[in-house]
C-alpha cells in the first residue's frame, strides 16, 4: 500500500475533485491519496465523491483554512 500526496491548495472546486479522480485512476486498489485543499467546498465534495465512486474516505481533518483528506482506492 502506498500513499500519494496531491496538493490542490488554491484551487477551487471542481478542480480538486477532477485532480483527485485522475490521481486515483493512476494508483492500485487499496493505495491511498492524501489530498490537501483550501476550498471549503471540498469537504462536502470529497465526502459525496468517495461515497458515490466506491472509494473510502479514511481521514478528514481541518487546520485553519487547510483541509486534508486521506482516500483509499476501492476495488472497482
Amino acid at each position: 500500500m502506498s500513499t500519494t500526496s496531491l496538493d490542490c491548495s488554491g484551487l477551487n472546486c471542481p478542480l480538486p475533485i477532477l485532480r483527485l479522480s485522475k490521481a486515483i485512476n493512476s494508483v492500485g486498489a487499496g493505495d491511498r491519496i492524501e489530498l490537501i485543499a483550501t476550498d471549503p467546498g471540498s469537504i462536502k465534495d470529497v465526502q459525496a465523491w468517495t461515497n458515490q465512486t466506491g472509494n473510502t474516505l479514511i481521514e478528514s481533518r481541518q487546520d485553519a483554512q487547510r483541509y486534508t483528506f486521506v482516500i483509499a482506492k476501492g476495488r472497482q
Binding site: P14, I17, L18, S21, N25, D45, A48, Q52, T53
Partner: peptide, 9 residues
C-alpha cells in the same frame, strides 16, 4: 456540471 464532471469519467 459538477455532477457530470465527478461521476462521468
Amino acid at each position: 456540471v459538477e455532477q457530470l464532471l465527478y461521476y462521468a469519467p
